[in-house]
Amino acid sequence: MASNNGAKQPLLEVRDLHVVVAGTNTEILKGVDLTVNLGEVHAIMGPNGSGKSTLVNVIAGRPDYEVTSGEVLLHGQDVLAMLPEVRAREGMFLAFQYPLELPGVRPWQFLKAAVDAVRKHRGETEVSAREFDQMYKAAAIEMGLKPELAKRAMNEGFSGGEKKRNEMVQLALLNPKLALLDETDSGLDIDALKTVAEAVNNRRGPERSILLVTHYQRLLNYIKPDFVHVLVSGRIAVSGGPELAHELESKGYDWVKETAAAG
């Protein structure tokens, strides 16, 4: 794992990951292998039901699933042994496909508590109310979230697009090392899509990796991935560069399914 001499440093390593729906024998991931190095952007594509959302949710610690074998490492540390809140504090962030409404929960307080939890974990002091105020405003402006929404309860009564923008506000505030974006493009109009893509692109850099899950190639016109992986029936069937997304767009997922079956 030497990071000297410009060698690539793995941030996320997924090894032979097998996952079932909690309490059942229904296997969704059937041996996934994936390495995301620092600074890289990876896209996971795949048909409905292929397990691509499950993959990022398991990495973030959603309790609906059980890992039956395999491992997940973040900076070489065993992620599966960590509680979801610890994973977040270690620098992981999941932008939800369907962000939850938190009735009556005031966004300012909630988000400040989140930022402070991460800072405390790193041995830093809590952010001052004033400083947080500025961070929050700047993030809301960048993501095009209407200021009056900050006065409502978290995500309550937000439109689908507003919820997705609010996920990006959190991405900006929490400043993660590993951003997991679960179908962030779904339900977005073209303007919102451009805003979100720009926000993600602004956060590309040598200290951050991004793993995004998408069904369509559309998002990848705006966020150009370093690698594309196609997940079929719980396994990565094909991996390649950004050109793979275009190939999928023209040939469809059946092509990959056939290739996978033949291979």
Binding site: G61, E85, A88, A113, A114, A117, H121
Partner: peptide, 13 residues
């Protein structure tokens, strides 16, 4: 559980 997981995934205990 989904609501709770959402909050935990932001680092809250």
């Amino acid at each position: 559980d989904d609501v709770i997981f959402y909050m935990l995934s932001r680092g809250l205990d």
